[in-house]
Design a protein around this nucleic acid. Structure first.
Lengths: 336, 336
DNA sequence: CCGCAGAATGACAACGTTGTCATTCTGCCT
DNA sequence: AGGCAGAATGACAACGTTGTCATTCTGCGG
């Protein structure tokens, strides 16, 4: 049965500021000011313009405004993949801060692929974003030069470096790794293994870990993004490498949970037979049984700071700190 | 120690098409065509223009292009909150489809709040998005009229209705509820409880559930977003209402996992003492112990379809089906 | 060698807004 | 009463691109 309106023909141009001005009986530019810079306009006029806005159903064309004013109030956000739960609090608080200030977030997924990163950066620059928040560091030299040349504010996050492109908000993964190794060694665990995602930052944590334990250890590398299922198979792999394994450090809480499930399925008690620690302090970490010892990182703060810094830079403020270390914290619970 | 460049003064205007044209020795408009409509231009010229693009580091200003051509290649995406894992596959595949076609996603969080939804819709309309993908239905009448008037393609998702604003891609939550009730009844469970989030769609599922069991049941309502911790406390609440409870239907896998953890902590065997089922078929559902009986919804398909439909409509294609039911499936595992 | 179709290129205006500078109005001080 | 500061408003151009229509080339048949 053919329905009536399959497709409305992309119809009705919407009202422009011109229409509003005419309806209000003022000039175009006065209408503009009434809406964007009210203190330059008398209250009576503002009221009339606002009535005209209501009457015409006017919605400002931000494309035109951005083009002329050279400020898009658009911020680009790059994440490896949306399915990585780790970054969600960051994205969430970033979005909150941004749209509290009238900014919008444009999202792109890099898929752990540097060429995608370049393509996305170009797409965002093409839309003249006012700033860019990226998870991790921008590694492509070409992209770095490009961004520096344009003077676009860029906040690199979830990592740390002495030479940020612009500003970096994060923490040292190497330190996380060594702190975790120190923690486990301090607990007296001799035979420790690692289950780790194959992404860059997880590798940094592994480096830090190995540097502290001082020798190679049984290792299972799984493809990002981490999941419970991958944790289960990782433990199998680790036990194959060392059947007498006593502890496992995981690069994500999801992996750790999988390791715990697999351990329990094999009749191993956690932490008595096998200690397990994770990374990220996911929402479930405190509530599984046994509760998960893990590394807490304040992802929401990272997002909030990134948003505020972008907005500050767009308002022309000078930023002092170009390297902001939000630190991390080992949260001791039952599993290790 | 004061560093050198605290803030680069939002510098260096980037090259425009004008610069490219001059560098290539062609007119502005030829340069434009060489980049956007190459078949109108000779190969030799295209090559020269592309060389000029390289040389000048030109990045098209999509703001200007969108303004003139009235096509922004921007799609607005509205989700309740990013932290709701349920929608991530949808967002992920939506982003993938979109940027395969050169479109970008603008993200907004509604926070289960209709007024935020209106504000976000206005922000997106203001940026002249080519289409909008929203999680759930658009309930505000004013917003619906506005969008219809503008003729913006709108894909409502994760729900179903006879009268979509434009196009709806989803499934019936009421049917999910009754199917789940039917499943549990068929298994012979008499005393069934519900643990449910307080969001609109979870309530629909509850309605369907109650309609099928035919009477009220012990109920724990928890605030969205769902989590393992909330699941644990929900089971406590349900057992208070009926200590002889035999089964629990949860509105999210995260809740179900919490119910299982809490049951195990209380010495209840799942499913022998207490059957548990979830909703969403999260990545961990198949791999926890016991594995979780749940409802699978193809969120990735929803995102992919939404993206393709938006793109199709932007290309002027006529869409026949305005109501697309992707259905759902009860996945039987160990927990119920 | 002319004329002509079709390919290739160009000129101009326009998209809807805001920045800049100019003008008019209002109220107040001397 | 005259003049003047400051508030309020307006005119015009410009942001960087693309749509529309016009012009110039190229190759080929008669």
């Amino acid at each position: 049965m053919p329905r009536k309106s399959d497709l409305e023909p992309l119809s009705a141009k919407s009202a422009t500021l011109h229409d509003v001005a005419r309806a209000a009986g003022v000039s175009l530019i006065t209408a503009s000011r009434a809406l964007t810079n009210p203190k330059l306009v008398s209250e009576k006029t503002i009221a009339r313009v606002q009535a005209a806005v209501q009457a015409t159903g006017y919605i400002p064309n931000l494309l035109a405004g951005s083009l002329k004013s050279n400020r898009s109030r658009l911020v680009g956000g790059l994440v490896p993949a949306l399915s990585v739960a780790q970054f969600l609090p960051t994205l969430q608080s970033l979005t909150d801060v941004l749209d509290g200030a009238g900014y919008q977030l444009m999202l792109g997924q890099m898929r752990y692929d540097d060429s995608r990163q370049d393509a996305l950066l170009n797409a965002m620059i093409g839309r003249r974003v006012d700033g860019i928040v990226v998870t991790g560091l921008i590694r492509s030299e070409a992209a770095r030069r490009q961004l520096v040349r344009l003077g676009t504010p860029v906040i690199e996050t979830w990592d740390l470096t002495d030479r940020p492109l612009d500003i970096v908000v994060g923490f040292s993964h190497i330190k996380v790794g060594s702190a975790l190794a120190g923690y486990l060694l301090g607990k007296g665990y001799g035979r420790i293994g690692i289950a780790t995602g194959d992404d860059h930052r997880a590798q940094l944590r592994r480096e830090g870990f190995l540097a502290t334990v001082g020798h190679n250890v049984p290792t299972a590398v799984v493809p990002a993004p981490s999941s419970l299922a991958l944790g289960r198979s990782a433990l199998g792999e680790l036990l194959r490498q060392d059947p007498a394994l006593r502890a496992v450090a995981c690069s994500a809480d999801q992996l750790a949970q999988g390791v715990i499930v697999e351990a329990q399925a094999r009749g191993l008690r956690v932490p008595d037979d096998l200690a397990v620690c994770g990374f990220g302090n996911a929402d479930f970490a405190a509530h599984i049984v046994p509760s998960l010892t893990t590394v807490h990182v304040d992802g929401a703060s990272i997002g909030r700071l990134a948003g505020e810094l972008i907005i500050a830079r767009c308002s022309g403020e000078t930023i002092r700190e170009r390297v902001i270390d939000v630190g991390f914290e080992i949260v001791q619970r039952q599993s290790a």
